Amino acid sequence: MAALWRRARLVFHPTLLENPRLFSSGLSRTEAASANEDEVVGSPLSPGDDLRSRIFRLRLPKRSATAALERWVSEGNNVTASELRRIARDLKRSQRYKHALEISEWMKSHQEFELSDSDYAMRIDLITKVFGVNAAEEFFEGLPSTAKSCDVYTALLHSYAATKMVDKAESLFERIMESNFLLSAVTFNEMMTLYMSTGQLEKVPLVINELKLRNISPDLFTYNLWISASAATLDIDGVQKILNEMAEDTSSNDGWIKYMKLADIYITVGHLVSSDSSLVEAEKKISQREWITYDFLIILYTGLGNIERIGEIWRSLQKTSQKMTSRNYLCILSSYLMLGQMKDAGVVINQWKESKALDFDVSSCKRLYNAFLKAGCSGEAETLLQLMRKRNFDLD
């Protein structure tokens, strides 16, 4: 831990602004100068030589992006803030977080570059990835109040959510709510994502209530999280209410049909199967708010009563290499219950029994059991009870 904090303090050390090379590799002045000659690949005479290419050719984290940048400038080349931001974003997308943070630090240490809210927000995210959330928190608290915009607060909130630090996230969320910021759905989505990832699904509606209280319009990702949480808790009436609300969404003349059209696009172009997560992406560069989960697609088609499409989505999900969770099973079972497809529900329960899904939401399963009994499906209820006992749970 002590070693971590020694590294983290480099971000804020006064000599860093005077000697940016020290940040990137921990080298002395002499060693950093040597790094200029030995580590920076490319020369001004190389065809197609540019700053981005030089930095991306460094590859190894121990090599100095700062040294490459210093050499570029020393050769008489100009560099703009927009170019540096673009390089930093590309490095981040490539998971070259240390080099991206060096670019961010170089901009900060040169006063001719006026940093924007998004610059500070990205810096918090990068510090979290390189040094940890505590270092990001210290950087945030050290910023002047004028630099602490809603975007910057939300960036720290994202760091807390990503590391599942519920108490700190809730405390920061309260600070944001007490501010006079012009808020968007993104901040609320961070809290819902946190509650979904920590299994605190009952808190998702509380976030929605706060969003509505402030007259903030939900976006696609908001609906995504909200409806998935309701389905996972077997709140079938709640799911139907959300679908009805989407139908009356004043932000679109077509209501929630626009989401169905988007879903059709995802499926038609063959992007339904995602190998590493439950997210269906039209392309790799889309933003968080354009992501759609399988659960969301299933519920949307449940609203349309399209049983065939629901089956296609479920089979597609099963073909992915992602880890299936109890939430996935509860979602599809909720849909079949809503549509009265008890035979299909029984098939899914049998699949669940044979699966390796380790997480198990007992309270939701009990609600599902009672729902089957209420629908007169004693066979499906008994199969579910067997599943619960197999997982060492019972109704008592």
Rank of each mutant, 00 (worst) to 15 (best):
N215V: 02
R52W: 08
S184M: 02
S43C: 15
L211S: 08
Y153R: 04
I265F: 13
V41W: 09
E141D: 10
S355M: 09
S179E: 09
F140D: 12
D90Q: 11
M342W: 10
S251T: 10
S316W: 10
S316Y: 08
L339T: 03
R59Q: 06
E290I: 00
I349C: 07
R54E: 02
L385R: 14
T30Q: 14
M338V: 08
D344G: 03
G255I: 00
D264G: 10
K241H: 07
N77H: 11
Y223V: 01
M122P: 04
M122N: 13
K323H: 14
L101A: 05
A100V: 00
S104W: 00
A32E: 06
Y160D: 09
N224H: 06
N77Y: 08
L4Y: 12
G42E: 13
L384N: 06
M342L: 13
V186K: 11
E382W: 05
S82C: 06
E70A: 14
S171E: 15
L243V: 00
L51S: 00
D276K: 03
G311P: 03
W256Y: 12
N209I: 03
L220N: 15
K168T: 00
R21H: 12
R327K: 04
T233G: 07
G346V: 01
A282Q: 11
S275Y: 03
Q341Y: 07
R29Y: 11
E174P: 03
L279S: 15
L201P: 07
W5T: 14
R9S: 15
Q288I: 05
V41R: 13
L262Q: 14
L157D: 06
C150Y: 09
G142M: 04
L317R: 07
N350S: 14
V133C: 11
H110L: 02
S217K: 06
L297Q: 12
F296Q: 08
F221H: 15
D125I: 08
D295K: 04
D394W: 01
L300E: 06
A65N: 08
N78C: 11
E18H: 12
E308K: 12
M338E: 11
I307L: 12
K98I: 08
G311K: 11
P20C: 12
I267W: 12
G340E: 12
L330C: 10
K319I: 02
E202M: 05
V166D: 10
E112L: 10
S217M: 07
A282T: 11
P20K: 10
R315V: 02
L220S: 15
D90P: 01
R123N: 15
K356M: 04
N306L: 03
V348A: 04
I292N: 08
W72L: 00
A381F: 09
F188Y: 15
P20V: 09
R214P: 10
L234N: 13
S118N: 07
L300F: 01
